[in-house]
Amino acid sequence: MFRDALLVAGKDLRVEARSRVALNQVAPFALLVLIMFAFALDPDSGVLSKATPGLYWVAVLFCAVLAIQRAFAIEAADGNRDALRLSGLEPAGIYLGKMAAIAAQLVILEVLLGLGVVLLYGTKTAGWALLVCTCLAATAGIAAAGTLYGVLAAGLRVRETLLPLLLLPVLSPVLIGSTRAFEAARNGTPGEGWPWVGLLAVFALTYTIFGAFGFGPLLEES
């Protein structure tokens, strides 16, 4: 199963390396969201810097929706879905592979967003261990739930509008948890943040298990 996962993850990342859609479109979109927040919340009034953790994670979630839609859009062309179904790869392995590829792209986006937030919003970073662990746990959760709902919406004519509607309410615990953890890191009270990382980890584990089981039946339908 893990060999299948590596195979699929490698394929997805190679497709991204060649087409560079995440780099050319999703990353600029992330920058765009940061700038839009600056327009909406006057940088001089201090609201922007107070709200930074939340804005950061909202931006991550929007980019995640795009990344997940892209991950399944590449399967829609040329009968790839049929090829995947007939390939004899274990569905749970395919699931983990896609999840890993999405997670890898998200981590890079988060680093870029973090850079953007530090440069553009003047955020002071502290509590690095907490920040990194939060990102990893949150990314795992986003990728796990996203891959499951992504395959559910894939192949439908309404997929672009259905995926955000399904995924974002489900990811609200991730938004709450990661924002609180980031706030704790910023306030210099990491002790408050670690329980939230625990919540994120439980979420990620739960959805990884659900996803591994649910992916197979959903992949069979076109």
């Binding site: 559910l152 439908l156 004519r157 309404v158 259905l162 509607l165 399904l166 309410p169 489900v170």
Partner: peptide
Amino acid sequence: LLLGYLAVRRIP
């Protein structure tokens, strides 16, 4: 969450 479920029920 319920609106999401109902949206899936209505997919063509």
